[in-house]
Design a protein around this nucleic acid. Structure first.
Lengths: 224, 224
DNA sequence: TCAAAAGTGTTAGATTTACACCCATGA
DNA sequence: TCATGGGTGTAAATCTAACACTTTTGA
């Protein structure tokens, strides 16, 4: 503490907006806050940054603790720093959003932390400024999904085009034309048709597709 | 300090990327760092967040102190939190970018703080992770300038279409077609032609335009 | 008189949107 | 046999991109 001792210090936390996709709905993982103040209120999951980790790492640790998964897609939303944002103390928080495939996520893990998947359109009032964080995270994600292949982080590794379309619609919040959507998909060589058939979703069965990251890297042109 | 005492606290600073436009170039205001560590290195201007202000306010205060101007356009870039980003101590910094009209900015103020306008394409190595901050700020600004009327924050209140075009080109980093550019401007009713003529830029003289915010708010359709 | 910047329209090509029917299958 | 979701192509409309010459005037 040699250089800056005259200045104030703050607690810094991270809050993670975890997006998942299920039943054609975009969902967020929220839980009941486990600590005071605000114990019992609906809240994002978060954690404090500790001295030996970067903010990014703190967010990764939080996410990994919660999901048991690593290498998830995660991006910073921004820093939230209103003086009274936390009802307890002055805490500055950095929000991140992460994408997970709901099927990879262990239900036991979910129950252990008392978390629930909540439809993005039915989010209750959350602790502190967490509603704001979710809103901003969604806005960022909407941008990204049009220009980067992040959809695949929310889907199983094999997916049907209808699933992909429903996901896209859930994220941008409006319906799109099936034929036009598929036309665009066909132009992206890194979205590969397998010869596997999904029989769960329809009687006829739907072709299963796969995202080929190697092909994508050779010609990273994604546009929805 | 009742709730979170077990957790670490951090210094939190703000760093401001101040963009200006002059001589058809996009510029950033940087100076020689006035404090240890890193005294004398090229650096963004920043300041520590204090206990009684939000991060946004801290950024506004920093900017106002530096420029003597208030109500400038400012947006958050994000939080930077690598453990060793600051060579002195662990400091988490939140970067902001601001837009100013170089002509509104008092030269005395600039000299007082030893600041220089540096071409965005000729930025020297800066203190800490400030180069990264500038890069990210520019990326964000590039997005914004296409969909929101922020150009006018970088220009005098009366400007010629050539100035507007040069600014746009400087920000996106490529030249655009004059006729197509002007066609798009004509469609935006909130960019109003005045009957004033600027004689500085050419012998013939160029019509001066003005951004009408009231008209913009009635039909906020901006697209470059 | 000429150099320098201002100002102005048209056309071809590319992209986007709208739209409707047949297919395969399990219940 | 029929209800359900899967799959497919074309044409009109819109948007984008390319392109060159005339005007004005101060030096």
């Amino acid at each position: 503490m040699t250089y800056y001792k005259e200045y104030s210090q703050f607690w810094v936390s991270v809050d993670v907006i975890i997006f998942g996709f299920d039943e054609s709905k975009l969902k967020v993982l929220i839980g009941r806050r486990q600590m005071d103040p605000g114990r019992g209120e609906w809240s994002l999951y978060g954690g404090f940054v500790s001295a030996n980790e970067s903010i990014d790492e703190a967010a990764e640790h939080t996410l990994e603790k919660l999901t048991g998964l690593s290498n998830l897609y995660m991006r910073q939303v921004g820093a939230f720093g209103a003086v009274d944002r936390d009802p307890g103390e002055r805490v500055i928080s950095v929000a991140y959003y992460a994408l997970i495939n709901v099927k990879d996520y262990d239900e036991k893990q979910r129950e252990k932390y008392g978390l629930e998947w909540v439809d993005i359109n039915k989010i209750p009032t959350l602790y502190s400024d967490h509603n704001l964080m979710v809103e901003q995270a969604l806005k960022k994600m909407r941008q990204k999904i049009k220009t980067e292949p992040i959809s695949f982080r929310l889907l199983p590794s094999l997916f049907t085009l209808t699933q992909l379309q429903r996901l896209y619609e859930a994220v941008i919040g409006e319906e799109v034309d099936k034929r036009n959507f598929r036309k665009r998909i066909k132009e992206m060589d890194f979205i590969e048709k397998t010869n596997l058939i999904d029989k769960k979703s329809s009687k006829r069965g739907a072709a299963l597709y796969r995202f080929n990251n190697k092909v994508y890297n050779e010609d990273p042109n994604f546009k929805l």
